[in-house]
Every structure is written in structure tokens, then in C-alpha cells.
Design a protein around this nucleic acid. Structure first.
Length: 615
RNA sequence: GUCCCGGUAGCUCAGUUGGAUAGAGCAGCGGCCUUCUAAGCCGCAGGUCGAUGGUUCGAAUCCAUCCCGGGACGCCA
């Protein structure tokens, strides 16, 4: 699928080529040699697992085939002769000289990552805030997961569009606007608290919706939906008329209403940018492209589907039916209004065609899975899943799990009293600063005597790292229980653990009397097992980044970095660096330290986590 | 009712896409600092990988059927 080749500095790439040739020579097949890192260091560094599955195809004996491959494969200058084990595993131990050569090849600014050959853009839908609503912990996920995905593509040299698809248009906003106007709030003194109150009040005042109720009954919709609609019907009233007239004025370009609308957007976004900046997520004003941007493209969407014959009228509404399922996609309401599906179709077309995205990724709550399936399928019907030059785009809904409360029920904003994102970030930073300050009191601590401003900066970075790592290092698709104490833990498998490893390395390098040029001029060396293990893991970095771009599994970054930190800690334990009397050995170890620090910092940057020099 | 997602140690989770003896962290117990940073390292203990059957050299991973939990299901986003 990927047009990019395997990283040249990864030993698995070379082994793949050599074993592929051997398989071809032995069986005249072009098969995956199944090169994997060894599960146990006692077996060697890598293993080739192809013999077993290949024997199935050739109807041969797996051990004989493994024997033939071992005899045939050319590992000159790479590894010792392959050793057969078990049912047909081929165990491979690399030559140290080869590891050193690969290490030297990746020890530069690129860290072995070659720029992608893909010239089309990647588009990442992230953040997705609603105007007039405060960010809650769910927005944390949509923001930092999306930011990390974007950073990975950027790291591979790809053009990336971060799209913050704001909910800034339509009836909900009009309701809030109307509620604000009724309560005579001075819009120039507007605070997010005012906005939240108005939004909640507007929601409570409800929506009158008997067409929906009838449809829900007729189509045997779930009880949840019916309940909601019934609740709304009871509280319908004057508010809805006011909101609808406000919406009409907004859509008509009424200067007064548009000015008010702009003010509530500005007010909302001030705090959003505050939070994204704190999170070190690259989401700013330039990434805004909300629903209002697409308002003039909605009618053409419906027309296009009708003209192409993919849409039809049903009970006064316009729907796109699908061949393989009952549920259609509704793109125009019976009252002529458009829906979020309509906006999403317009946005998808814009992203593939106008932004030239051959990869479009929606970082949105997993509960919208069915909705996106429908939107993507509808787009495919009409051919909107293609870039300008007609290339098929890969469109993915990266649905992340719901954030649950301690009762394992979803945290709902309407309950009102749950943690806002701002509360969470403030708490994390406060704890981080307290911890860093406390540790700095130890006279032996490298942070001892540092100015308060520096300790605060480090403490905040530690707190934010804890939050981000806790989220990004788990399987994105799973729900998780929101537990503040666990999220801001600083020990064990945490963000600060990685920062600590980085600070340790940085401290060694800072204390070294050897100059950077002296270190860089010294050859790498991997004599000790801990050095070797560290080196082998460093060499896997470029492939890991490629894997994340392919699978969008951000937890692979965390797992890689944790293992890297573990490898370094083992090295730190058993291989003295500055205490080494031998100049060549000391400098070789310093060079390994420098490379490890570089990779750790680079990897943390994919998560948007700062790596302080001291902590 | 239809469809989707999940179930791994007491708790929270990994498991490199079918590989060798299922791994971490927290919690528990026991070790290691006159320090290249103990936010660390080493050890002990902890498992019917929801259940049953199947596919094969080999299954936590793939298939089938159940059980349990969660979610979505046309005029909200």
C-alpha cells in the first residue's frame, strides 16, 4: 500500500532483501521472509519465520526448507550463519560491525527517516470544538490524537492540513445567540461562563420536532432516541421561534447578528487556543474551517446527488439509500434544512479534491462510526473520494473511545459538573510544579537552586506529559475511565518516566569534558549486551514511525519510547560512561548517549511532549 | 429488533498483525544510593487470555456459535 520503501538503516530491511533472494532461489517464489526481532535475546537478534508457512505452500518439510534457506542466504558482512531452531525458525545474530555501520548511517539529523515520496497531502480532522461550549475531556482526545497523527505525517515530510471543523453554524448556535440576546448580556464582556449558561439554557428550552418523532416511531428507532424526542416535545415553545428567526437573520447576513455571532466565536476560541497551546498541540486560528465555511456548498451537494441519481425523496426529505443496508443517509430535512451529513459530504469533497488529500483522517468519537461509514460510502458512490488528479484517497474514521466516569458511564457535558479540559490541565500542571519543586529541595538534585520560573516551566511540562502520554499510549479505540490520579502519575509507565530518561542522558552529556566534535569523530561501539540491545532498538525508530503513519496507532510510539528508556536505563546501570577511563570507550558511549537522547527527544516530539534537559 | 465495538494478573493496560516459556505499570512483599539523577534498577508473588467447538506444524490473535458489557440505529451534531 505504501509507496515508501523500508528504512535503509533498519537491519530488518537488509535481512528482508537477503532472505527474499534466498527464498526465490530455493523455491522461485516471491514471499515475505517474515523477519522479526527475536522474542528472546538468547535466540539472537532477529528471526526469519518464513520456512513454516512456505513449506505449507510448497508441500515440503519446514525444517528442510529452513536448512536450504540457511545454506543459500548470503549474510556476508551482516550476520553469523543462521541457526535453525524448533519447527523451522531461523535465528540470526548480527555482526557488531554491521550494527555499528547502520548506527553511523542513522546518526544524523534525519535519524534514518527518509522523506516520503507521496506528494498528495494528508488531511487530519481534529479538535472539533463546538462554539459556545467549553472544551471537556473528550476534546482532549480529538485534539492530541489528531495532533500526533499530523506530527507523524509531517515528520515523514508530508504536506499536512489540520482541519478544525468547528460547530459554528446552524440551529444550536442560533439558539445560544437568541438566548444571549434575550438575557441582554454585553457581548464585549462575554465570558465562556456566560456562553455555557446560555448554551445549556438553550438546550433545555428544547426543540419541537414532531416530524422526527413520527419518523422515529415509524422506523422502529431505539428507545433512547424516542425518549429524547419526547422530552424535547414537551418543552417546545417560544424559544424555538426566536432561535429560528435568529438563524434566518444569521444566514441572511444581518450585520448585527453576524457581529454577535463573531463575538461568541472569538470568545470560545480564545480559551480553545489557550488549551491547545498548553497542550503543545498545533491547533491555531489558521486551522479553523468550521461548518459556516461550507454553508454555500450544501445545496450543491444535494443537487449533485440528485442529479447523479444517488439520492431520492422520501417522506419529504432527501436521502441517499445504500444497497447493503436499510439505513439511508439523510442529506436534506423535510423542511428544506441541511444536516451534518450534508456538511460532512461538502467537507470531504473539499478535503480530497480542493486540499488534494490522498489520506483523510477523521479523529472523532467512535460513537459516530456508523455516521462516517455512511458519509464515506456516499462520497464513494459519487466519486468524491478522489484527489484532483483522480487518485483514490484513503479515508479513515479514527474513532477513539469514550471517556467514562468512575461509574463507567459516559461523561456527558449536559450533566454540567464534570471536569472541563481546563480544570484537568491546571490540576496536572499544579501537581507537576509541586513535584518538581519538592525534588529540587534535595541538594544533590540537578534542579537544586534553579530559578522558580525554570522549575515552573519544567513542572508544567511534566504535568502535561503525564496527561498526554496516559492518553496517547493506549489503544485509541477503547473507552477509558477518567481517573485524575492515574493520569497525572509520574512513576512507572508514564510520560515523566520518558522525560526522566531523557534528562539523565542530557545530564551525562552536559557533564562530559569531551567536546561534541571529539564524540562525533569516535566510532560507535556495541561490545556490551546492554549497548547492543540499546543500539538494536535505536535502529528500529524509522520503521516505527512509518508503522504509525500506516496504522494510525499512536500507542506504538509510546511503547517504542518506553522500551528505549528501559534499554537506556539498563545501559546506564551496567555501562559507566563518564567514569570510563578509556577515552575511546568513553566517547563511544557518549556517542550512543547522544543518539539515544536525540531519538528520545524526536519521539517525544511526535507526541508534542517537551523533553527538559534537567528535572 | 438490526448493525458495530470490546472482554488478557486484584486494578489499569501491552501483546510487533498466526510464532518459541502471554508481558508492563499500579497495588503487595524483599533487596540496591558517602549518587555519570532512586521520577530509577533487580528479585518474589500474581493467568482457565469470557465460554465451547473448529482451521494447522503452531491460536490471546483467524472462523462459527453462545455469555457478559458498551455503543449506534432518518429529520440533533
Amino acid at each position: 500500500m505504501s509507496i515508501d520503501s523500508r528504512p535503509p538503516t533498519d537491519p530488518a530491511s537488509t535481512l528482508d532483501v537477503r532472505f527474499r533472494a534466498a527464498i526465490h532461489a530455493v523455491s522461485s517464489l516471491d514471499a515475505d521472509p517474515q523477519i522479526r526481532p527475536s522474542t528472546n535475546p538468547a535466540f539472537g537478534d532477529y528471526q526469519a519465520n518464513a520456512a513454516m508457512s512456505l513449506a505449507k505452500v510448497t508441500k515440503g518439510n519446514p525444517r528442510e526448507l529452513a536448512n536450504a534457506l540457511a545454506a543459500c542466504v548470503d549474510l556476508t558482512g551482516i550476520a553469523e550463519p543462521a541457526v535453525i531452531a524448533g519447527p523451522g525458525f531461523l535465528n540470526i545474530r548480527l555482526e557488531s560491525a554491521f550494527i555499528v555501520a547502520m548506527l553511523s548511517a542513522m546518526d544524523n539529523a534525519t535519524l534514518g527517516i527518509e522523506p516520503t515520496k507521496e506528494t498528495h497531502a494528508a488531511v487530519v480532522d481534529l479538535c472539533g470544538v463546538n462554539v459556545a461550549k467549553q472544551m471537556h475531556v473528550g476534546h482532549l482526545r480529538a485534539t492530541i490524537i489528531g495532533d500526533t497523527i499530523a506530527r507523524v505525517f509531517e515528520r515523514l515530510g508530508r504536506k499536512v492540513w489540520r482541519e478544525n471543523h468547528l460547530g459554528d453554524w446552524g440551529l444550536p448556535i442560533a439558539m445560544t445567540l437568541a438566548a444571549l440576546r434575550r438575557s441582554h448580556v454585553d457581548l464585549d464582556q462575554l465570558s465562556l461562563t456566560h456562553l455555557n449558561d446560555a448554551y445549556r439554557r438553550a438546550q433545555l428550552e428544547g426543540r419541537h420536532d414532531d416530524a422526527g418523532l413520527a419518523a422515529a416511531r415509524a422506523t422502529d428507532a431505539g428507545p433512547h432516541r424516542l425518549f429524547e424526542l419526547l422530552a424535547q416535545e414537551e418543552s417546545a415553545g417560544e424559544a424555538i421561534k426566536d432561535a429560528k428567526s435568529t438563524l434566518l437573520r444569521l444566514q441572511g447576513g444581518d450585520t448585527e447578528v453576524v457581529a454577535a455571532w463573531q463575538k461568541i466565536i472569538d470568545c470560545t476560541m480564545r480559551e480553545v487556543y489557550d488549551s491547545t497551546s498548553t497542550l503543545n498541540a498545533k491547533v491555531t486560528a489558521e486551522h479553523n474551517r468550521g461548518e459556516s465555511f461550507f454553508r454555500d456548498r450544501l445545496a450543491p451537494v444535494v443537487d449533485a446527488f440528485l442529479q447523479a441519481g444517488f439520492a431520492k425523496e422520501d417522506k419529504g426529505a432527501i436521502i441517499v439509500p445504500f444497497a447493503d443496508r436499510e439505513r439511508p443517509l439523510l442529506i436534506r430535512k423535510s423542511d428544506g434544512g441541511f444536516l451534518y451529513a450534508t456538511t460532512d459530504l461538502a467537507a470531504l469533497r473539499f478535503r480530497t479534491h480542493d486540499l488534494d488529500g490522498s489520506r483523510v483522517i477523521y479523529v472523532v468519537d467512535a460513537r459516530q462510526r456508523d455516521h462516517f461509514k455512511d458519509v464515506f460510502d456516499a462520497a464513494a458512490l459519487i466519486g468524491w473520494d478522489r484527489t484532483k488528479d483522480g487518485n483514490k484517497s484513503e479515508i479513515t474514521h479514527l474513532g477513539f473511545g469514550t471517556v467514562l466516569g468512575k461509574d463507567k458511564r459516559p461523561l456527558k457535558t449536559r450533566s454540567g459538573e464534570n471536569f472541563t479540559l481546563k480544570d484537568l490541565l491546571d490540576e496536572a500542571m499544579e501537581r507537576g510544579v509541586a513535584e518538581v519543586t519538592r525534588r529540587a529541595e534535595d541538594p544533590h538534585a540537578p534542579t537544586h537552586g534553579m530559578p522558580t520560573a525554570d522549575l515552573t516551566r519544567i513542572g508544567r511540562a511534566v504535568g502535561i506529559a503525564a496527561i498526554k502520554y496516559a492518553d496517547l499510549s493506549n489503544d485509541l479505540t477503547k473507552d477509558y475511565v477518567f481517573d485524575l490520579d492515574r493520569m497525572v502519575a509520574f512513576e512507572g509507565d508514564t510520560g515523566p518516566y520518558l522525560q526522566y530518561a531523557h534528562a539523565r542522558i542530557a545530564n551525562i552529556l552536559a557533564k562530559s569534558k569531551d567536546s561534541a566534535s571529539e564524540i562525533a569523530a569516535t566510532p560507535h561501539a556495541v561490545a556490551e549486551p546492554a549497548e547492543r540491545a540499546l543500539a538494536l532498538h535505536l535502529l528500529r525508530y524509522p520503521q516505527m514511525v512509518q508503522d504509525v503513519a500506516r496504522t494510525l496507532e499512536t500507542n506504538r510510539i509510546g511503547a517504542y519510547l518506553r522500551t528505549l528508556a528501559e534499554c537506556f536505563n539498563a545501559f546506564y546501570q551496567s555501562c559507566p560512561v563518564l567514569k570510563s577511563e578509556d577515552t575511546t570507550l568513553r566517547r563511544a558511549r557518549l556517542r550512543l548517549c547522544a543518539l539515544a537522547r536525540h531519538v528520545l527527544q524526536d519521539g517525544l516530539s511526535l507526541y508534542g511532549i517537551d523533553a527538559p534537559e534537567r528535572m
